[in-house]
């Protein structure tokens, strides 16, 4: 059993990190903390992708004239794109929070909900 858990440790870590992020997204009232949670949530998936590219005994995938075992570079490339996406999400989210702050003077979701309770 222990071995099973250890052998897949990268998966466990990704799940744990993901849940931490998810918890922050759901439970935190502060919008900035929500964004932090969201970033953690996304990052966990990046870690998963990067870890699956690992090949036992593999080396950096640069052709050097000799045959060798390479790790799979494709997931890493994909994650480069995904990181860009993640950064953009964070940027847009911050921009929105700035706007929200200008509008309501607070970034606590509870306080905002209290304010707009009577709007339609």
């Amino acid at each position: 059993m222990m071995e099973f858990i250890l052998a897949k440790y990268n998966y466990w870590i990704y799940v744990i990190i993901m849940m931490i992020g998810f918890y922050a997204v759901i439970a935190k009232s502060n919008l900035i903390k929500k964004i932090i949670g969201l970033s953690i949530f996304q990052t966990s998936v990046f870690l998963l992708f990067i870890s699956i590219g690992k090949v036992d005994g593999g080396t950096v995938p640069i052709y050097q004239g000799t045959e060798a075992v390479y790790i799979n570079p494709l997931p890493h490339v994909l994650i480069l794109t995904a990181i860009v996406v993640g950064v953009s999400v964070t940027a847009v989210a911050f921009a929105l929070v700035v706007n929200i702050y200008r509008e309501y003077g607070t970034i606590e979701e509870n306080a905002i909900l209290e304010m707009i309770k009577h709007d339609d």
């Binding site: 919008l31 969201l38 949530f41 989210a93 929105l96 706007n99 929200i100």
Partner: peptide, 20 residues
């Protein structure tokens, strides 16, 4: 409307979770 940024933010949070 003043609710627009908040609606956008909520959409962002849920949408990002979905995309992930």
């Amino acid at each position: 409307r003043r609710k627009a940024p908040l609606a956008g933010f909520r959409y962002l949070v849920i949408g990002t979770v979905g995309a992930t």
